[in-house]
Design a protein around this nucleic acid. Sequence first.
RNA 1: GGGUAGGUUGAGCAGGUGGUGAGCUCCGCUGACUGUAGAUCAGCCGUCUUUCGACUGUGGGGGUUCGAUUCCCUCCCUGCCCA
Length: 340
Amino acid sequence: MPVGTQATVKALTPGDLHAAGAQMILGNTYHLNLRPTAERIAKLGGLHRFMGWDGPILTDSGGFQVFSLADLRRVDDDGVTFTSHLDGSTHRFTPERAMEIQGLLGSDVAMALDHLVDPGRPRAEVVEAMDRTHRWAERSLAACARPDQAVFGIIQGGVDPELRRSSVAAIAGLSFDGIAIGGLSVGESKAEMAATLEVVAEALGADPRPRYLMGVGSPADFFIAVERGIDLFDCVLPTRVARTGQVWTDAGRLNMRNAAFLDDPGPIDPGCACEACRNHSRAYLAHLFRARELLAYRLASVHNVTWTLELLRRLRASLADGSFADLADVVGAAFKRPSS
RNA sequence: GGGUAGGUUGAGCAGGUGGUGAGCUCCGCUGACUGUAGAUCAGCCGUCUUUCGACUGUGGGGGUUCGAUUCCCUCCCUGCCCA
């Protein structure tokens, strides 16, 4: 899922997303409730109609903002009080209100409100956030008022195997439509993430529900996570890094602002069929980024989203035909090296 | 020709009225980014040095002085005003 926090995947139109092969995108409860507000979007026909996207939408609950806006919120057992990053006004989020907002937005998948903390925090804090996430999960499920909306629960527990196991038991024991793994890709090592995913996979066993690894990932992360049973991802990286000039290719990452590309007539990635690669050169991209032309952001985003979704397609196919290791040896390895 | 304001590291500036000018913004170079407070942020950006540090540098030349970006002489260049 490309990330469209504020009812837009930055720099891309819904048409661009379809062309890139996007099937589902992510929106954000916290941001959209602040602006333009959930009630306004509901009045305008819901998030799909509002942003002109007819595919599925998953809305994050605001749980990540508990983590990323740590200086602007206070958490208690009942919920979270945010000081708006836009105007300083106060906003109260409870599991029930987060579900209500997502109901108003009309997303296809709503996320339960969770409490994400840095896995490096003292164990007592990780436990507290996890237990709170479990209580909020039950309240979120109970608060869902739309039968047409799926609800996913979120596993927490940092990088502690024992806590992750108990979180899987708590969340998978509830009647969620999908299981999300939260609290990763927030500073822990690749090895810790891999180990944690293995613990979760083992604990989930044959549970048939979709498994969604939240906030991941980088190209290298996809290999780690797909191999450990993850079905669904969301990540800002493809679009965020694109806006700063970094593009992803089968040969690794390239920074289009680098002087070396000013005279490079070739496409970003010769194997890519996106609009940017079909019609434009690296030299053109390098120029657009230097000139801060708006087209730079769109072309780089079109490419990264297309390439990323294509990589996921190739990963899926490789599981069927047994070529996963070969793909990892080529593309996966290209992203383990330092950037070119 | 007369007057006046200037000439500082790629560009634009700050500072400096005798006691250590490497400071800012652009440009440029490189890096970072993971459920988006992000078209953002960080480092570097005279020379040598990995670093520490050393050296050079205020238009040119000359002078005064222990010491000159500063004071004096002279020349060059630029803007503006007058003729």
